Simulated assay, not measured.
Amino acid sequence: MEIINATIEDINTLMALYDSAIAHQKAVSDLVWKGFDKAMVLKEIEENRQWKIIIEGNVACVFMTAFNDPAIWDERNKDAAIYIHRISTNPDFRGRGFVKRITNWAIDYAKANRIDFVRLDTWQDNPKLHQLYLNAGYTYIGRKTMLPAADLPVHYWGTTLGLFEIRVVE
C-alpha cells in the first residue's frame, strides 16, 4: 500500500469514487454529499492536495487535504494544521481501515512539516463516523453550524458538523 498524490490522469477515477461514495451515502443515510465540481478537483490535484491510496496497482481510496479551513474552524484555523476531507473508498476495498491509515499518514506528514494538528469534520448526526474517528485517535472537540458560503461545497450549507482533531506530539 502506498499513499501518493493524485494526477490529472486520475480525474475520472476520483470523480467516479466521489459518485460511488454519494451512492453509498444515499443507501445508508439521509446525509449525502451534493457532488463536486470537476474544475475544483482539478485545481486540488494541481495544488498537490488530492491523494490516492494504491493497493496492487488499484486506486483503493482517495482523499483531499487542506492547510487552512477558516469557514469551518474559525479561530482554530490560526493553528498549524492539516485538514482531511472527502475520504472516498473504492467499494472493492471497503473495510480495510483506511481512516486509520490516512490518520497515521497525516500524523507522520504533520511531524515532518512541523504541523501541530490533524483535523477533520463530519455531520454531527452521524454517530457511526464519529465512532470511527474516535477509534482512529481523534478527539471530538465540538460542533459547528454552517451557513452558506461560496468557498464551501454545497453539502456543508445549513448542516451542523462534528469537529475532530489530533494534537501531534513530536
Score class of each variant (00 low, 15 high):
E2W: 05
I3Q: 07
N5S: 09
T7K: 12
I11H: 04
L14S: 03
M15C: 07
A16S: 09
A16M: 04
S20E: 11
I22N: 03
A23W: 04
H24V: 11
H24S: 10
K26Q: 06
A27I: 06
V28P: 02
V28C: 08
V28S: 09
S29N: 08
D30E: 14
D30M: 12
L31W: 05
L31N: 08
V32D: 05
W33G: 10
W33T: 05
W33Q: 09
D37I: 11
K38P: 01
K38L: 06
K38F: 07
M40E: 11
V41P: 00
L42V: 14
I45N: 01
I45W: 00
N48K: 15
N48G: 00
Q50R: 03
W51N: 00
W51K: 00
W51I: 04
I54S: 07
I55A: 09
I55F: 08
E56I: 03
E56W: 05
V62I: 09
F63V: 00
M64H: 00
N68D: 13
N68K: 11
P70F: 12
I72L: 14
I72M: 10
E75I: 10
E75P: 00
R76D: 12
N77D: 15
K78E: 11
A80M: 12
A80G: 06
A80Q: 10
A81E: 01
I82V: 15
I84L: 09
H85E: 06
R86A: 07
T89W: 02
N90I: 04
D92C: 06
D92V: 07
R94I: 14
R94C: 14
R94W: 15
G95A: 08
G97P: 02
F98I: 07
V99L: 13
V99Y: 10
R101T: 12
I102C: 04
I102N: 00
N104G: 09
N104Q: 13
N104W: 04
N104K: 10
W105L: 11
I107L: 01
Y109C: 00
A110I: 02
N113P: 03
D116T: 13
F117E: 06
V118D: 10
L120Y: 06
T122S: 14
T122Q: 09
W123D: 11
Q124E: 15
Q124T: 05
N126S: 12
N126F: 12
K128F: 11
K128T: 13
K128D: 12
L129F: 15
L129W: 14
L129Y: 14
H130N: 13
L132E: 13
L132V: 15
Y133A: 09
A136K: 12
A136W: 12
G137S: 04
Y140Q: 07
Y140V: 02
K144G: 07
L147T: 14
P148F: 04
P148R: 08
P148W: 02
P148T: 07
P148G: 03
A149I: 03
A149W: 08
D151H: 15
D151L: 05
L152P: 00
L152C: 10
P153G: 05
V154E: 11
H155D: 15
H155F: 15
H155R: 03
W157S: 13
W157N: 08
W157D: 13
G158A: 04
G158I: 03
T159M: 10
T159L: 03
G162V: 03
G162K: 02
L163Q: 06
E165W: 04
V169Q: 14
